[in-house]
Write a protein that binds this DNA or RNA. Structure first.
Lengths: 237, 237
DNA sequence: CCGGCAAATTGATACTCTATTGATTTACGA
DNA sequence: TCGTAAATCAATAGAGTATCAATTTGCCGG
């Protein structure tokens, strides 16, 4: 097992386990063998193994339960394609599908807009304004508010196409569930001219509240979409 | 090959029961054997079995009645008394919830409207036009088309508040899944004057295709709802 | 039909023992 | 100084066993 001159042992073990998870050999909810056994199998001390496991825990891939064992928590699969990354996106082109991309228009830390539904404990939030595209077609205008308590600073250059992916990998914040209410509302006047309607136009409007896995509401957003080209799509069963 | 450890017994039993429910081997309302018997059968202690049952209870899949027994509760969210009947209804009052009722405006057997999405094999369909209420508030206008092959005759007096319930009990037709696309569209001119918008108003509009449990699309519909008082609500997880 | 009672069943608690991770310390080698 | 090994003890979870409380259901008699 030990390779001289390579990574420290604990990193090698971490990497091994991460690869097993990414490859699907270790799946969400599975329990690892007891530490004593694992250490013996890899020919290393328990302390070293524990250092490796702690690194996985820090990445949210492992839940360690004192007295019970170590459980895989591979939640949003980090190795997967864009499917899981956009698990909560419900906008599609009218003819179906559409590859999502987004252009950030502004990011500001501000007092929360009182018109927003309740979320988070901080009176301030990070306001992100974006233009959403589906396969290059202008699709929607978004105003997203992340609770200020989640991070002191948020910069446009930090953000990735999928905000939820960014939250997960950079802030250690996993969105576990969300609630959407679709109605109608006037397009705001900050909407960019690339969006094909004048401000004030009554458009379909989504109000969303998103919750982390401990149940707390951490994000709220408004989205106005183009009803000529876009549909909010739901598959019910 | 990644090695895994065994899950604790109580988790194994939970998983077994969950799988039995998902596979239909345990159905809604069914009573489990007495705990003493179950524990003996699985070769575990009552305490351990009870821990497994408590987990199912926490997930809303089991109702435990002291002095009586443990009952499967695998239906839709138990919080909604007649929830099963309205499992596919996604309209709620803006402030949440709302008891759904409907008034049938007309029922006709007609050639299918070519603007409809494709469904069913019969060139004719039953067209049902309704006014939807939520807790007495006028909520939406619906035009529903059931494929003509599902029944030769459909009369307004036959229909119940929940069409899907009617389909199931009277036509032996179970709607297993549906697809909704929410956009915007002009209120049709047949809309009743009780609906608080003039015909032609751009309103949120749902286009739905419903499938029976053998996969066939058997019903299509359009719904226009009042964005002042009503929201199309989705809980995502 | 109602009330009482017995039997059956789950709810709750306590105790014991084993397995497992959490935490800390010391020592050694590169 | 960092990585690693090894040891020890603390704390928690899991599992088994036992006992009693509380509730439900069914049966029987008045």
């Amino acid at each position: 097992m030990a390779e001289t001159g390579a990574l420290p042992l604990h990193m090698q073990i971490s990497e091994l386990l991460i690869r097993d998870i990414a490859a699907g050999r270790l799946v969400d909810g599975e329990r690892l063998p007891p530490e004593r056994e694992m250490a013996a199998r890899h020919g290393i001390s328990i302390g070293t193994l524990r250092k490796a496991l702690a690194a996985l825990q820090a990445q949210g891939m492992l839940e360690r339960v004192q007295g019970s064992g170590n459980y895989i928590r591979s939640g949003p699969d980090p190795g997967r394609g864009s499917g899981a990354v956009y698990a909560f996106l419900r906008l599609e082109l009218a003819e179906g599908g559409g590859l999502p991309t987004a252009r950030v228009l502004s990011v500001d830390r501000l007092p929360k807009d009182p018109a927003l539904p309740e979320f988070g404990s901080d009176p301030q939030g990070h306001r992100i304004r974006r233009l959403r595209f589906l396969s290059g077609t202008v699709a929607a205008v978004e105003e997203i508010w992340l609770d200020g308590a989640q991070t002191p600073v948020l910069k446009a250059s930090d953000l990735s196409e999928s905000l939820y992916h960014f939250y997960s990998t950079r802030l250690g914040l996993r969105i576990a569930r969300a609630e959407d209410r679709v109605g109608q509302g006037p397009l705001p006047d900050w909407a960019p001219s690339a969006f094909p309607y004048p401000p004030g136009t009554a458009l379909p409007m989504i109000t969303r509240v998103s919750h982390s896995h401990d149940g707390a509401a951490v994000e709220a957003s408004w989205t106005w979409f183009d009803p000529q080209h876009v549909r909010y799509t739901v598959r019910l069963r």
